[in-house]
Amino acid sequence: MFAVVVTFQIKPEAISAFMPLMTQNAKTSLAEELGCLQFDVATDISRPGEVFLYEIYDNAAAFEAHLASAHFKAFDAATRNMIASKSVTTYGRVSQ
């Protein structure tokens, strides 16, 4: 298991354009990437420019495949100028 947490700060004028692209990226990841097990997109009405992602992959290689996918590259190019800041944190499963 490989977890990815992403927090975006979206420019105020871009939020309405960003969200459909973000949700489509999540849907496509789940539908087309065998190693993508979960991809949640969340927001909080009190912080309208903040978008939180919680993604679960089989392993780090599956996440790297996500980053190399055509649909992610298209999303990244389309939204690059909409993002004020972005934080990505990854986690691996602790052996039990």
Rank of each mutant, 00 (worst) to 15 (best):
M1E: 11
M1G: 09
M1I: 12
F2I: 13
F2V: 10
F2E: 10
A3K: 12
V4Q: 13
V6T: 10
V6K: 11
T7V: 14
F8E: 05
F8S: 06
Q9C: 07
Q9S: 14
I10E: 05
I10V: 15
K11A: 04
K11M: 08
A14H: 14
I15S: 00
I15F: 11
I15Q: 02
S16T: 10
S16V: 05
A17F: 01
F18W: 00
M19L: 11
M19C: 05
M19I: 07
P20R: 00
P20T: 00
P20F: 00
P20S: 01
L21P: 00
L21A: 01
M22W: 09
T23Y: 09
N25S: 02
N25D: 03
A26F: 07
A26H: 04
A26L: 06
K27R: 02
K27C: 01
K27D: 10
K27G: 02
T28D: 13
T28C: 00
L30E: 02
A31R: 07
A31L: 11
E33S: 03
E33I: 00
E33T: 03
L34F: 09
G35R: 12
C36K: 13
Q38I: 09
Q38D: 15
F39P: 10
F39G: 11
D40F: 12
A42W: 08
D44E: 15
D44Q: 12
D44S: 09
I45N: 12
S46Q: 08
S46W: 06
P48A: 11
P48T: 02
G49L: 05
E50F: 07
E50P: 04
V51F: 04
V51K: 13
F52I: 07
F52A: 09
F52R: 14
L53K: 13
Y54G: 00
E55M: 08
E55Y: 12
E55R: 05
E55K: 05
I56A: 06
Y57I: 06
D58G: 10
D58N: 15
N59L: 05
A60P: 04
A62H: 01
F63S: 09
F63D: 10
E64L: 14
A65G: 08
H66Y: 05
H66K: 06
L67Y: 09
L67F: 15
L67T: 11
A68L: 02
S69G: 08
A70E: 13
H71L: 02
H71D: 05
H71P: 13
H71T: 01
F72V: 06
F72W: 03
K73Q: 09
A74K: 05
F75V: 12
F75P: 00
D76W: 08
A77N: 10
A77K: 13
A77C: 04
A78S: 09
T79F: 01
T79Q: 03
R80Y: 03
R80E: 11
N81I: 05
M82N: 07
M82Y: 15
A84P: 02
A84G: 12
A84E: 05
S85H: 07
S85R: 06
S85A: 09
S85D: 05
K86F: 00
K86W: 03
S87N: 06
S87W: 12
V88P: 06
T90Q: 12
T90M: 06
T90S: 13
Y91L: 01
R93Q: 15
R93C: 03
R93W: 02
V94Q: 09
S95R: 03
Q96L: 13
